[in-house]
């Protein structure tokens, strides 16, 4: 008997998914590893919010709605150092034990933690040095800050992967009539920017930043880049279904659409959640 009906396939599938060989044993220390990781992600996001909060305040103070963002070396460097570094370096520890530099989670942050990130601040509000301009109008979006610059491994200008819907909305990038995301929801930027066309946001924050026509990676790749140049720039990428994927080295991935196989027609930065 070789020919199976669709019905047979379905019952085989159900049986397969019930198979006890799918059982995976939980590693000792798994809980601590995950909780430490969650705290790292959170800290990284908080650092990012500090950065964008400062930028928005600066715009309000000067009273200018349009401002070219410089690549912003300092802030991004800090975010990368405290957020992505430890995540990647888990490869150093060779056993199932959680990374030793992230010790007890249930405790109040240790000295090294507090030095690294101000966790004592409320997390839903960005902790800017001058609170007044932010706190007085929590629900009114700020004047959008027009960012300019490449879409880097952690985000684009003030928009970082992982920022919450509320944070993005308050920063003025989403239209007034948007509703919070349910699952991964795509929002077209109200700023009509040609570097970034849309953001996909879920309950766990911005998961995808889609480039516009003039969007570029820091390496200068974007719409119109030849496939050869793409491969030369990101030689470790892989291609399937017309999409060339390249790890940024910061736990995020560029996905370049190469539908016809000769040039990039668009790209997005994603952290894998959307």
């Amino acid at each position: 008997m070789s020919e199976r009906s669709d019905h047979d396939v379905v019952s085989d599938l159900r049986r397969l998914f019930d198979d006890e060989r799918l059982t995976v044993h939980v590693a000792p220390g798994a809980r601590d590893a995950v909780v430490s990781g969650a705290r790292r992600v959170r800290r990284r996001r908080e650092m990012a919010v500090v950065g964008s909060g400062l930028a928005v305040v600066a715009v309000a103070a000067v009273g200018v709605a349009v401002m070219a963002m410089p690549p912003n070396g300092d802030q991004q460097g800090t975010v990368a150092a405290s957020g992505t570094g430890p995540t990647l370096s888990t490869a150093e520890s060779s056993s199932v034990a959680p990374p030793s530099r992230e010790p007890q989670v249930e405790r109040v942050p240790t000295q090294s933690d507090t030095k690294e990130a101000p966790e004592s601040e409320p997390r839903s509000e960005p902790p800017p040095p001058s609170k007044t301009s932010q706190d007085s109008s929590p629900d009114v979006p700020n004047v959008p800050l027009y960012a300019s610059g490449p879409i880097g491994p952690s985000g684009w200008g003030p928009i970082e992967l992982g920022m919450s819907y509320e944070e993005v909305r308050k920063a003025g990038y989403l239209g007034e009539n948007t509703a919070p995301p349910q699952g991964c929801t795509t929002y077209v930027l109200s700023t009509r920017d040609d570097q970034v066309s849309a953001l996909t946001i879920s309950e766990s924050g911005v998961g995808r930043i889609s480039a516009g026509n003039n969007g570029r990676t820091p390496e200068g790749v974007g719409s119109g880049t030849s496939k050869e140049e793409l491969r030369n720039t990101y030689p470790d990428g892989t291609e399937s279904d017309g999409v060339y994927r390249a790890d940024t080295g910061a736990g995020t991935t560029y996905e370049f659409a190469v539908p016809d196989g000769d040039e990039v027609s668009g790209f997005a930065l994603t952290d894998g959640t959307c």
Binding site: A33, V34, G37, V41, G162, S164, G205, G272
Partner: peptide, 10 residues
């Protein structure tokens, strides 16, 4: 692990 870390952070 990746997904739980993100979710745990919020």
């Amino acid at each position: 692990q990746t997904v739980l870390e993100k979710i745990g952070s919020r």
